[in-house]
Design a binder for these strands. Structure first.
Length: 354
DNA sequence: AAGGCGCGCAACCGCTATACC
DNA sequence: TGGTATAGCGGTTGCGCGCCT
């Protein structure tokens, strides 16, 4: 090996291409084809290395390149393909007519990755994010994003708000696991974290048993929405919460996953693809579940902290009533007080080091 | 009006794979 | 079979632009 890069050539121009250079390159390739890229610059009268010419042609000047904004279908396809292929941008690009690998890569890094993160999905594994550290590190971004939503449309706003709800819920759940999984009596700091003055407003003064019960309720609700009891969940949601916006959102996400499955079956190229179907349905269900959570929360927005705790304590185990109480409880876990969550995160890191 | 800042995108860098001698 | 040239790929960089203060 030991090949020296072609761009080491002295005196070869680098940096942005001028319109004149573009014209020279296009004219030459139209007349002669690119042939050997190494020899092309000299033949075309360009003071560039062959590699630079090749990149300029393949990423920008090629006549079949489609420019402009990515459509929603293209976005979905990229996410879908990325979940199967990973960072194989060129392979992904072959499935999107007119898009280059570079363009898709850039779009992924600048838009789609953030979008998935905001939805509580790990852009690498395409799974629900459960790792406590990752979640903790994402919270400042989530909070910043939720405070900086001016230019987004209504559905996007709701999705992002829902994603923030979900992330908070996941942190809470991890926190409870942390405490409840300790074989020995839970550390006092963790206890005070869950029920003490640094706890979310709704949990202040709360006993560990109460918190664990509430967590089970929340988990049941979320699991139901994630496909374990979709029909009853949808029915409960419809009766308890006739919100057109959220039902439309739910439908759109179901249509989203169904369309994707159908497309996969039509293509037939990759064979059965459970990973992707799961990605889409879980993405949709998560969004729907959180949409539901937030809208029920909105309905219970005025519940005072002590009233909420009363409801939790008097909750029976039947699915619907516990679900609605858990939703209300959830409202208490979603204070707009960032400081509250900061306290939680601080204490989590302290607890983890013990 | 000007400076700071963040974002998006084109281009580059470094590496691997493949072709060819 | 080994060395070299070339193509292709993915990660990273840096510039330009728009927005904000």
């Amino acid at each position: 090996m030991g090949r020296s890069p072609c761009c080491d050539e002295v005196g070869v121009k680098k940096g942005p291409w001028t319109p004149e250079e573009d014209k020279k390159l296009v004219d030459y390739i139209r007349e002669n084809g690119h042939g050997s890229w190494r020899n092309l610059p000299k033949s075309a009268g360009l003071n560039r290395c062959g590699k630079s010419c090749r990149l300029r042609w393949t990423n920008y000047l090629r006549p079949d390149i489609k420019r402009g904004k990515f459509t929603e279908d293209e976005e979905r396809l990229i996410i879908h393909l990325h979940s199967v292929l990973g960072n194989k941008w060129s392979a992904i690009a072959t499935r999107l007519a007119g898009r280059t690998d570079n363009e898709i890569k850039n779009y992924w890094n600048t838009h789609l990755k953030k979008k998935l993160l905001l939805m509580g999905i790990d852009p690498v594994t395409h799974r629900r994010r459960t790792d406590l550290d990752i979640l903790a590190s994402s919270i400042p971004g989530l909070l910043a994003a939720s405070a900086n939503l001016g230019s987004w449309d209504a559905n996007t706003l709701r999705l992002q708000a829902d994603a923030a709800h979900l992330a908070k819920f996941q942190i809470f759940q991890s926190l409870v696991q942390l405490v409840s999984s300790a074989g020995t009596p839970p550390p006092m700091d963790a206890m005070s974290l869950l029920g003490g003055t640094s706890a979310p407003a709704g949990l202040r003064g709360c006993q560990l048993g109460d918190v664990l019960q509430m967590n089970r309720q929340l988990e049941a609700v979320l699991n139901g929405s994630l496909g374990l009891a979709q029909d009853s969940m949808a029915a409960a949601t419809a009766s308890a919460l006739p919100s057109l916006t959220n039902m439309e959102l739910l439908d759109s996400f179901h249509a989203y996953s169904d369309r994707d499955i159908a497309a996969e079956q039509l293509n037939g190229g990759d064979g059965p693809d459970e990973v992707n179907n799961n990605l889409y349905s879980s993405t949709g269900h998560l969004a729907a579940a959180n949409s539901t959570l937030s809208s029920v929360s909105a309905a219970a927005a005025t519940a005072a902290d002590d009233q909420m705790m009363e409801r939790i304590n008097s909750t029976d185990a039947s699915a619907n009533s516990s679900a609605s109480t858990a939703f209300e409880a959830w409202e208490g876990l979603n204070p707009d007080d960032d400081l509250c969550w900061k306290n939680i995160l601080d204490q989590i890191s302290w607890t983890n080091t013990q």
